[in-house]
């Protein structure tokens, strides 16, 4: 065997062993494409079935979506119409609001004028009440003076009548004495007739007639004590009962416990409503 043949044998053997190793390693590590193909085929079938169901669901959803879209389009149209109506109503309301605001401004000015006039009227009412109170107190003083003057006048009249009677009696006595002096044969010891004019009783002060009805006003109100604007000069005495009224409404009764000349005080009875300063009191309703 030649040397070249030996070299070729060795190289061929090595090359064959190398190629065999490569083939074995490739075949041993190669994938099983058939089983992979079967698995992929099954997965593809499942995916196709799922795709069909999804397509059917998609079609259903598309149909529902179209239906909802038509409904929503109808609702949107109706809402737009309503929105337009509401916008027009809003414009009308804003216009009315502006008109009412203008009216309110005008009424505000009128009310301000009314408030000023009412304030001035309240001020004048207060002044009038003060003047009325002063006039009432002056009236009470005047009535008291009139009563005193009337009593003194009655005394003077009675005194005058008594003086006139004395004068007539003295004149009668004078006439009698002149007759006796003019009759010389007349007996001096004859009985002398008395004066025809009788001596009147002594003058008495005229009795003050009690007023049949006493009226006044409440001057001050405490918890249970009330002061009235009438007193002994008006004929008020302890134990009298005054009825308090406000307009036609009965409020309570007042039992007089303390009396002064121009005022008196009492306690509340049969209270149906608390009296206030200025309410009317009277002995008769």
């Amino acid at each position: 065997m030649s040397t070249l043949t030996k070299i070729l044998v060795v190289l061929l053997s090595l090359f064959a062993v190398f190629l065999c190793g490569m083939v074995v390693s490739y075949v041993g590590s190669a994938n099983n494409f058939k089983s992979q193909y079967e698995a992929e085929k099954i997965a593809r079938a499942a995916i196709q079935a799922e795709n069909l169901s999804l397509v059917s669901q998609f079609n259903e959803q598309v149909a529902k979506t179209k239906e909802l879209e038509s409904k929503k389009a109808t609702e949107i149209q109706s809402l737009e119409e309503r929105n337009n109506q509401l916008a027009s109503r809003l414009q009308n309301a804003e216009r009315l609001g502006q008109e009412y605001q203008v009216r309110a401004e005008s009424w505000k000015g009128v009310l301000t004028g009314f408030e000023q006039s009412v304030a001035s009227m309240l001020e004048s009412l207060k002044l009038t009440r003060d003047q009325l109170e002063m006039a009432r107190s002056q009236n009470i003083t005047n009535q008291k003076d009139i009563t005193q003057i009337t009593a003194s006048l009655y005394e003077k009249i009675v005194e005058l009548e008594r003086l006139q009677a004395d004068r007539r009696r003295i004149l009668e006595q004078k006439t009698e004495l002149e007759n006796q002096v003019s009759q010389p044969g007349g007996s001096v010891g004859a009985a002398t007739p008395g004066p025809v004019t009788q001596i009147p009783d002594r003058a008495r002060p005229a009795a003050i007639m009690a007023a049949s009805e006493i009226q006044g006003l409440i001057m001050e109100v405490d918890q249970s004590l009330v002061t009235l604007s009438v007193g002994t000069a008006d004929g008020v005495s302890k134990g009298m009962v005054f009825h308090v009224t406000r307009g036609d409404q009965f409020l309570c009764d007042i039992l007089i416990t303390d009396v002064d000349v121009n005022k008196c005080a009492g306690v509340l009875e049969m209270v149906q409503q608390r009296p206030k300063v200025g309410d009317t009191v009277a002995t008769k309703l």
């Binding site: 065997m1 043949t5 061929l12 064959a16 062993v17 190629l19 065999c20 083939v23 074995v24 075949v27």
Partner: peptide, 20 residues
């Protein structure tokens, strides 16, 4: 020896063909 080497190479090729 070279004959044995050739025989081994043939066996390897045969075994590879059978495995494949």
């Amino acid at each position: 020896v070279y004959t044995a080497v050739l025989a081994l190479a043939f066996l390897a090729v045969l075994a590879t063909a059978v495995f494949a």
